[in-house]
Design a binder for these strands. Structure first.
Lengths: 200, 200, 200, 200
DNA sequence: TATGAATGAGGATTCATTCAT
DNA sequence: CATGAATGAATCCTCATTCAT
């Protein structure tokens, strides 16, 4: 029973992974159930056997993707002590790291689908809030340690997070003149300015 | 002949406006031609008479929306002299000004559809480039006038533009805690910090 | 506009007729939209263009069939004066007139679908009520004229109507030994007995 | 081996009972194998293990239901002597005894499915024939005993049986104004009239 | 021009049935 | 025996697009 359960879970996860990739690439409406099933090596009928509807699949897929993201961030931070290192880690995890970064493409879909899928937007806000809380905490630590300066730390966290979002969009969409290194440099310089550092 | 042409143009514009609103709300795939036609007070058959395909309609609609945006910005700037005023105008025009700002919802659709509609992405890059060039120019003027400071003005322009993008996303998606005033304040403070101003 | 309307109406009627025949033969669930459309010389897509759903088509089809039935009866009665003739006409119209009589096959479907389609059952009761009221009226006329005898005319009407129903079932289902003539003779003799006549 | 066989039989009977109830409620096409299996406390896979196809299950279910009915009637008649009592028993067993009487709902399904399932119709005719033969026999007994009068006893039996059918339909379908008592009274009076009795 | 009828391809979903475990 | 995963055929319905009027 336990083994069977695990088997089911692993199949569901495979389908969810396939769904995330597909949704990120094409958007919810343009993805066919058969595409997702094929990518996971199953049939469309089987997919429907596990997930009662395309909507439910979308919901579960986004949920899994978001949960994973914040857990990764927590794990990465747990290994670091210095505010500067922790800040750098958050920036690293937040910034898209390449053109067509699948994680970021998925956010585009979430934003675009906000009007049609309010429940997904809700859960996205929750994730985003956790993310900003992490950043805020690191900033507070840096201020306490004396390395960072910010009059309104919450505003600073929001500004930094938003800027990283905007820069990632440029990178993911392959905006001319904004490759990974340039994006990185822009981000570092701006973060430094916003936190009153000499250098990033 | 001229009148008829004008009539056609006005009908086409009405359809394009309707299309923009519809795409912004629902996304490309979820919009029905009949929705758009109804919104413009015509029939789907008539729409097809003017626009050969849905894709072509999408392309034309986005193109019109973007062209209009940059023209509005140029017109607004033309009336102002002081770099501070010009900067403020750009920020005003760039920031979403309310939850579910239709203009911004449309960008979400453009980003989400980037993989499927590369030609639209291209034209979007062009617009975005012009926008950043405007901002860059205003920053340069401010530096020349002595009010702004920036080591790498292009990077600063990119950082500011990206931050405004990210903040607009928060506002448009109704992120809890980030209403228009708060977003505005965050933007002002961050821009001040990035341009070495005392205050915004 | 009037012509166009009429055209649409005639197409709808053609589809409804095709639907009635199909439903009578196969039952609601076993009929395919494409069967009905094909029978009416159209495509399934076109059928859906006129009728939004299979259920709605069923409802409209039954409605048309029932309305037509009672109108035919009223028209036939209008031409007759003597209670005996009027009674005979009702019996004629009521009895199935051949094996697999499509009208009667449709009643079987209505009865079988009663649990799933309560609204159709309702409208069926209404028709049946009108039918029994007609019969009751003719019986009353016969009693008044002195030819018929009945202590409880309503009960007599119900008994006669029910018997005609039951006999029609036998005929329609091709029960061995019960052909049209035999059914007719049984009905006449029983009606005579129930109304105190010497002979039918 | 014998015990196992018996176990199998009891499981099959449970499935058949579940099938009868399900078919009566929803009709053949609308019933899912999983519904039937669940009702019998088994899985759909298990049902398929016992019955090779849905059609075969239908055939067996109806067969069981009909066989049981006629056996019950024979058993009830065996305990009675007087023609009047025997006639009453047949009427009691024949009339639906409540709204949505499951036995009668099943007949509706059988009639509705006559075109698609001729073999079931055949077996239904056989049952019906036996039923009418019982009635005919009781009527003959009553005539011989002097209590009943009928010129054509077969026709009278057919008329009575058909009337009971028609009245049961009214009751089962919950026709307004025809509750169990009223139906009963109508039946009794009509039977009395058809058999030349003073009273039922 | 403008309409709306008509098409037909396409897709989500259901479900009987099979079969490995 | 029993399960439930897996299949794939079948079907309703949608909708962009065409076209006669």
């Amino acid at each position: 029973m336990g083994a069977r359960e695990t088997n089911r879970e692993s199949r569901e996860r495979a389908l969810l992974e396939a769904a995330i990739e597909s949704f990120a690439e094409l958007g919810f409406s343009e993805v066919r159930l058969s595409d997702i099933a094929k990518r996971a090596g199953m049939t469309a009928g089987h997919l429907s056997y596990y997930f009662p509807s395309k909507s439910e699949l979308l919901r579960r897929a986004i949920e899994m993707s978001e949960r994973r993201l914040i857990e990764d961030a927590r794990a990465a931070l747990a290994r670091l002590e210095r505010p500067e290192d922790r800040l750098r880690t958050l920036i690293d995890l937040s910034l898209a790291d390449r053109v067509r970064d699948p994680g970021w493409l998925l956010w585009f879909q979430v934003w675009a689908g906000a009007a049609l899928h309010p429940e997904i937007t809700e859960s996205h806000h929750a994730l985003d809030g956790e993310w900003r809380a992490l950043l805020r905490q690191v900033i507070d630590e840096g201020i306490a340690a004396g390395g960072f300066r910010a009059e309104d730390p919450d505003a600073t966290a929001a500004a930094i997070a938003s800027m990283l979002d905007g820069l990632s969009i440029q990178l993911v969409l392959e905006a001319p003149g904004y490759g990974p290194e340039r994006i990185r440099a822009i981000a570092d310089a701006a973060v430094a300015a916003l936190l009153g550092l000499r250098d990033a």
